[in-house]
């Protein structure tokens, strides 16, 4: 089988999810051919991807692709997939990936599995597992079409470097794109500067109603800063106006799967668990030992967040430094 791994970049740098996608594609086994696809890629990007096992690369070059438009990216990827006779396209289920993947599937008349947390490739069969019902169940889907597209949930497939990176064999591909293909292009982007976003962080420290007021969030921020983590929030405190919606984790906020999720003063309503239960490790700090969050947590500290958080921050700061 020929597998295309779409390597998504942002501000000219490959995203971490690109390496995860590449690693997942290589994980299918050496009997499959893996081709990495870059959009207006640079030699630096190819070199970086080579460390994660990129050996063959198609660099899609077109001016229209300098500005993100889901329709143009889907069209370009579909053209590469057809020209390489690819059987499977893998991409990351980032915000952009979630819009490109379904479009690409329609173009290729391919079955599509979104936001996969496990991928199984056997001969020409592709199936993948995807969380449903707010993470309360998992469905395993099999693609029934000849062409296949799967998007992978960020931070679930661990990116692995290879021992001896090779110089990738690269070729350019000029897709046929007109201005009519750049439907709904992005006109401007504003980023929350200086702040790590919950959707991309490896560690998240979140605060909930147990903090009793926005003025106490510095306890969460200090722990986050010690851990190099992003700050998250529960719906209750976002609705109360203590924190911005961009920090909200849960069903009506962001779905995250960091390596470590620290829940401070969060009881763990099912809507919150929907957004963070696929985290690799969960530490809960809460005064109520019966709070549902302790059912999901790997580690727990039962007690007053106002007493525990400063001590925890201090202890971690001492430990990490040594």
């Amino acid at each position: 089988m020929t597998i295309i791994a779409f390597l998504e970049a942002q501000d000219n740098k490959l995203k971490k999810t690109a390496f995860e996608t590449l690693t997942a594609a290589r994980g299918a086994g050496s009997e499959h051919k893996v081709i990495g696809v870059l959009l207006n890629g640079t030699p630096e990007q190819m070199q970086e991807a080579a460390e994660y096992g990129l050996t063959e690369c198609v660099n899609v070059t077109h001016d229209i692709l300098n500005i993100f438009s889901p329709a143009a990216v889907a069209s370009a990827l579909a053209q590469v997939a057809e020209s390489e006779n690819a059987d499977l396209v893998l991409l990351a289920a980032t915000i952009h990936g979630k819009e490109v993947g379904p479009r690409l599937a329609v173009r290729l008349q391919a079955g599509y599995i979104p936001d996969a947390v496990a991928l199984a490739i056997s001969g020409s069969d592709v199936s993948a597992t995807h969380p449903v019902y707010a993470g309360k169940a998992r469905v395993s889907l099999k693609i029934e079409t000849a062409k296949k597209v799967v998007s992978l949930r960020p931070n679930v497939f661990t990116a692995k470097k290879v021992d001896a990176p090779a110089s990738p064999v690269a070729r350019s591909f000029a897709p046929s794109l007109g201005t009519g293909d750049a439907k709904a292009p992005v006109s401007s982007v504003s980023r929350n500067t200086g702040k790590l976003d919950v959707a991309e962080a490896e560690i998240i420290v979140s605060g909930g109603r147990g903090l009793k007021g926005p003025e106490h969030f510095y306890l969460v921020e200090e722990l986050a800063s010690t851990l190099g983590a992003a700050v998250g929030a529960s719906r209750a405190v976002v609705d109360a106006g203590w924190r911005p919606h961009s920090e909200q984790v849960g069903q009506t906020g962001k779905t995250v799967s960091p390596n470590l999720y620290v829940a401070c003063g969060i009881s763990g309503a099912v809507q919150h668990l929907a957004g963070m239960s696929s985290s690799r490790y969960i530490l809960a700090v809460n005064k109520d030992k019966d709070a549902p969050i302790f059912q999901t947590a790997d580690y727990g500290l039962v007690g007053d967040v106002f007493e525990i958080l400063p001590k925890l921050t201090k202890k971690i700061s001492e430990t990490v430094q040594h």
């Binding site: 309360k136 998992r138 889907l141 029934e144 580690y299």
Partner: peptide, 28 residues
């Protein structure tokens, strides 16, 4: 025609029981 089919649906694997502590300095 459907392009994907459901193979199975299951509950997520139950987590092993978490290690829950109190609030003493040793616990932290």
């Amino acid at each position: 025609a459907p392009r994907v089919s459901v193979q199975s649906m299951e509950l997520p694997a139950a987590k092993g029981k978490g290690k829950i502590f109190g609030d003493s300095d040793q616990d932290i």
